[in-house]
Amino acid sequence: MKLLYFAWLKTKTGVSEETVSPPEEVKTVADLLGWIKQRGPGFEDALADIEALRVAVNQEYAEMTDPVSAGDEVALFPPVTGG
């Protein structure tokens, strides 16, 4: 699974892109965020307020209950501020 981090998610985690293999029990976006969060202080800090995050799975906005699987590209970022 490919994880991408943008804006302050990237600053706080210190990672812009990584390939991970979460355990089998990680089945949804919410599961994945919970798993990422316990990987270290930077991740815990970045994911402290889940409400402040937006998640895209394979470049589509996703909900917490949406499924994730091994080949997915999952991106974590704050609400967008373009335009």
Binding site: A56, A75, F77, P79, V80, T81, G82, G83
Partner: peptide, 10 residues
């Protein structure tokens, strides 16, 4: 565009 396109300003 302002609420959906993934851009972020620093």
């Amino acid at each position: 565009l302002k609420t959906k396109a993934p851009f972020w300003k620093l």
